[in-house]
Design a binder for these strands. Sequence first.
DNA 1: ACGAGGATGCTCT
DNA 2: GAGCATCCTCGTC
Length: 186
Amino acid sequence: MTTPDRALAELLAEPVLEVAPRLLGMRIRTELDGQPTEVTLNEVEAYVGALDPASHAYRGRTPRNEAMFAAAGTLYVYKSYGIHWCMNIVTGQVGVPHAVLLRGGVPLVGEETMVNRRGRRDHLADGPGKLTQALGVTGEHNGSSVLDGRVRLLPGDAPPSGTVAATPRIGITRAVDLPWRFVLRL
DNA sequence: ACGAGGATGCTCT
DNA sequence: GAGCATCCTCGTC
């Protein structure tokens, strides 16, 4: 445990549609099995709880989405298609299940570890399942905090103006037109 | 570069 | 039992 970043904690408590684009350019760092790995986030999606038909929490609380109702900064990790782990950062207020799905990153530290975890040398973290696998994140980390855990969100430089694009979200079947995916194009 | 199709098993109805 | 916040391989262009 280290000292939580107060400014970061306050940012994460903001509304999810404001938080999501501001995560771009920040880093996710893990230290698991003695192997540090880190990526710069370049693709995220906002999920707006009860107001969002595409959200896992649209129909209320279930065993799976429990972590989404916890404090801002909590990790919500779920298994997608029975195969891949995907990770979200919970935002906003306790009891309101808003979260940002982390969909892609650029390797920064521990690239060889990522190669080993992924079983290939290319496409290490350019997708939600690939990102979690490269970082070694699993359901074991569901419910932990990115402010003080072994899976940590670190501040980065704010993206230059004009480099953040908002587009429809990927891989969903409901609310397909809402522009709640945010990508960093350099 | 892009798209179709299959693998795979958990979650909720 | 239906539906899925995905990934990989192999085909085409």
